[in-house]
Design a protein around this nucleic acid. Sequence first.
DNA 1: ATTTTTATTTAGGGATATCTAAACTTAATC
DNA 2: GATTAAGTTTAGATATCCCTAAATAAAAAT
Lengths: 218, 218
Amino acid sequence: MTTAEENYLKAIYHLSDGGKKSVSTNDVAGAMKTKPASVSDMLRKLGEKEVIEYRKYYGLHITEEGKKQALQTIRKHRIWEVFLVEKLNFAWDEVHEVAEELEHIQSPLLIQRLDAFLNYPKFDPHGDPIPDEFGDVKAKPRLVLNEMEIDQMGQIVAVKDSSAAFLKYLDKVGAYIGARIKVLDKTDFDGSLEILVDQKKNLFMSKDVAANILVQQS
Amino acid sequence: MTTAEENYLKAIYHLSDGGKKSVSTNDVAGAMKTKPASVSDMLRKLGEKEVIEYRKYYGLHITEEGKKQALQTIRKHRIWEVFLVEKLNFAWDEVHEVAEELEHIQSPLLIQRLDAFLNYPKFDPHGDPIPDEFGDVKAKPRLVLNEMEIDQMGQIVAVKDSSAAFLKYLDKVGAYIGARIKVLDKTDFDGSLEILVDQKKNLFMSKDVAANILVQQS
DNA sequence: ATTTTTATTTAGGGATATCTAAACTTAATC
DNA sequence: GATTAAGTTTAGATATCCCTAAATAAAAAT
């Protein structure tokens, strides 16, 4: 597989939501920032390699083999992201571009050793799970914000209370679905928390608020 | 610069002995394991980019700009080698291929951070010097083997005594010009050393023998 | 000084990955 | 159901990097 093929396949995997949905030529062109004409050509090739099932004019489905290969690329990408953030002190929003290059290095031994060096991380700095070498993905654990420990990081994925008042409050304090958070401090006395949002904003939050925020740990 | 261009320029830099010698099309084809016809094409391109000075049928000279760029690629290659050996426990003779890929990752920040992470190494695992970010190369320090400290590594580069008897002795114990060594132990009493050769062979050596072996430190 | 050998370049072609423009298929609208 | 719109594919180009075969230049040999 060439670098371009790997990138297409990875995009297709994401667009198909892990193989669940059918994907169109235009979808792929959008994701890859190329023209539909270029995509048609690539889809024909990927079809021949049997990593996708391609029917002209009707879009494509990723095959089991395709999924496996896409997950290996995703695995490498996310392991490199962990390395960049944890060892080289990159910020979590600075790593994507570089990981995009590093993921194409061809060396099973390298990724195996790197994984060990990083102590077999299960999630990347964005909170996304790292597939294992067989392509198995751990479901992202979800928990209520007030159950997190100090120094744990995660991403806000949902709220329990979706009343206008609550959402308005979240908006006011700068929290939102997708925000990356880190628990800086917890007060045993009242269960209140101090949270770092997007690596910049400090936020004090009562237990009652935290109990209504669902977080995906990383 | 493309990956292929970077690789050609690096090969040219080495073949020209750092810009001292003129290089022929055939030399480059040999080093790159491509055909001379392919090289001619590439030389024209590199000439247009003014990293080499190319005269048809008469070979080429690398330019100052070319040297600078080649040294940056070499810098990246060697820094990655240090990473692979020191952090990921690769053997020094396993790293070249992977470093050959890693050196083409385009991110000045990455190499800067990696350099810091490795504590600004001056030599790669083969004992070759790592150019700094301006392309300046430290001369390789040479010293007599018995002056090395415990745990220091290096490469045998020459002998003071080149008598047949001495060379025969070296051969017998498995030491040779180019051998990679590490000082495992030193005995103060008689100045004798215990040496690891090529990461496998243990060797006891008297002070008199060690005093006749020149080593390049790394 | 001519011939032979060696080195090098040019010409033409294949693979990858991209593009624009034109053609075609399917879906949507009237 | 015909027309229009949207989506997709094909055709033809360009750029990179490689190849083989043929042509040409330079060096070596007679």
